[in-house]
Design a protein around this nucleic acid. Sequence first.
DNA 1: TTGTACGCGTTATCAG
DNA 2: CTGATAACGCGTACAA
Lengths: 339, 339
Amino acid sequence: MAQKATIAMVAKHAGVSVASVSRVINGTLARPATEEKVRAAIAELGFQPNSAARALKVRESEQICLSFADIGNPAYLTITQGINSVLRDTKYRLILSSSLGTADEIHNHLQSLGRGYADGLIISPITSTPEIAKAINSLTVPTVLIGTLPKDVLVDNVYIDSAKGIELAVAHLREIGCKKIALVNGPLSTNPGRRRHQGFVDAMNKVKLKYDDSSIYFARDFTSQAATELLEKDKTLHRYDAVLCTNDLLAAGVIRNLQSRSVRVGEDISVIGMDNTELCTLLNPSLTSVDLRAERRGQLAAELLLERIKNPLSAPRKIEVKPELVIRESTNMRAGTRK
Amino acid sequence: MAQKATIAMVAKHAGVSVASVSRVINGTLARPATEEKVRAAIAELGFQPNSAARALKVRESEQICLSFADIGNPAYLTITQGINSVLRDTKYRLILSSSLGTADEIHNHLQSLGRGYADGLIISPITSTPEIAKAINSLTVPTVLIGTLPKDVLVDNVYIDSAKGIELAVAHLREIGCKKIALVNGPLSTNPGRRRHQGFVDAMNKVKLKYDDSSIYFARDFTSQAATELLEKDKTLHRYDAVLCTNDLLAAGVIRNLQSRSVRVGEDISVIGMDNTELCTLLNPSLTSVDLRAERRGQLAAELLLERIKNPLSAPRKIEVKPELVIRESTNMRAGTRK
DNA sequence: TTGTACGCGTTATCAG
DNA sequence: CTGATAACGCGTACAA
């Protein structure tokens, strides 16, 4: 750990004023001779400008804060990479808020998001309550929200029409001859859970396929373990032609369970996931999945945020991203081919 | 986006001095009556302390910066979660540096890590050159390094004896009857690549198993795609009894390739991965893997950093973490059972 | 072109 | 217990 130096020390060392040092640092005009001296002094002292002081003066922290419920989820990770890809050639650094689950945590976190700490904020609340909506509206920082925008919340928004994605999946299953389709979902208390549940109901009605409450399964969260736990209790899933899972992790758990009971996925039964994560091509059979364009959403969110920072008064914008179905081996089953 | 307020405005609004407001915020003694007034004013104005000003004054940013080459790698993600788990109940926030690959990028990044921007730094350079070592040594921030500590670098360090992990894997393979063992590794230009390569050589010698250059494969990086690309060109892998992969992603690619050629993994050939990521239980067959204790390493690194921040002058510490072998289906093969 | 002096919003010291 | 005021380190009018 080297020494600490201030701009004043550099100035004294170089025999110039602090103003000159500041100018050299910030690239304003200076006579070559002075610049030379200053640079030498900076190098010698190993001087680095104090970013807190700079932030206070310039009223910019050059930081953008990310606040996700579960950074461990591959989908959020991909969003993060999308954000990072556009932020990497800007002056902004990325900050990760500690993961927040409950409404209370989110509320507290948003509350504590003081000025000067971040120039912008990208959030994706997994639930939406009136308190959260209120907290978001009281933010003093440019914000963009990824996901379902709560009623009366006025911030930029990028969202995916996941219902449309479900529709694509159901249509595909219908096409290859599946009639009895189960849904394996996460909890209804979450935004994605609720949206995808509704999407399933609508999609099934649209293609005139029957379903009832017993064909809709709820895992305790969106992880593969949750799917595994769920299916260890309930062993009725193999009676369906197909199971649509509301993310790839759940699908991976489902496939694992089915295979352990010697059900041949892609032959006896079709499985579809959502998110189209890297996992899809690693599984055997590879997983058909609805691509929710996570990286794209991240990029768009970052771009939206940069524009808003530049122009804080413009009206909030809303961008929709279209899902795509990526067909792989887990839905190879042909109508009438079944045993 | 709500309004901005300063401590001075709050003071005026409450009819007290800025000092009193500051005291109320920071929990120092104040008469109930004043506290009451101040709190009311804070609520009314929606005041949030400016963290840049606070950081400047207190000389603490309450931020800890993380600098990894590839945050998309599940192993690093798990390290991050470990770090987060100990930081979550401290005052520190986690910052993610933009991902850095080349030595130059790392160098520049470390260089630009000014004071006041982070109170601590956790890095895990994937390569180590003299320049990087120099850059690390010139840091003005408490730092802990995860991974191989370059020569003459004086910072706290937590590392895993990956060679020992390889040894466990090879010993296990030997035990179940494998004699011809291949290694699928990432590039030798990386620290992990080099360490694991050497570990393999040593382990094979130790159990007196033959190997030569042709039995060691190098993927262009540590991803499943890299393994896939590699094996599309070279179709000799199935001739081995077992293939040891230097991470789970590579192993997933290997398994996929083997299965596409109708080689039965876990029966015809054994496969072992490293990192013991969640992926292991999702694959079919499930993947035997060397657990490199990523989460534990993250926790230890965070704890080390917190101690160093508290006590900046103590001698650098070095903590070794022991790997563990987790046996699953991909090494079910018994000696003599092969076709 | 360069230097002086002030202010950014907080916290801490020191009188009162 | 409270109020005035001096820093913290930097950027930048303004004056020279």
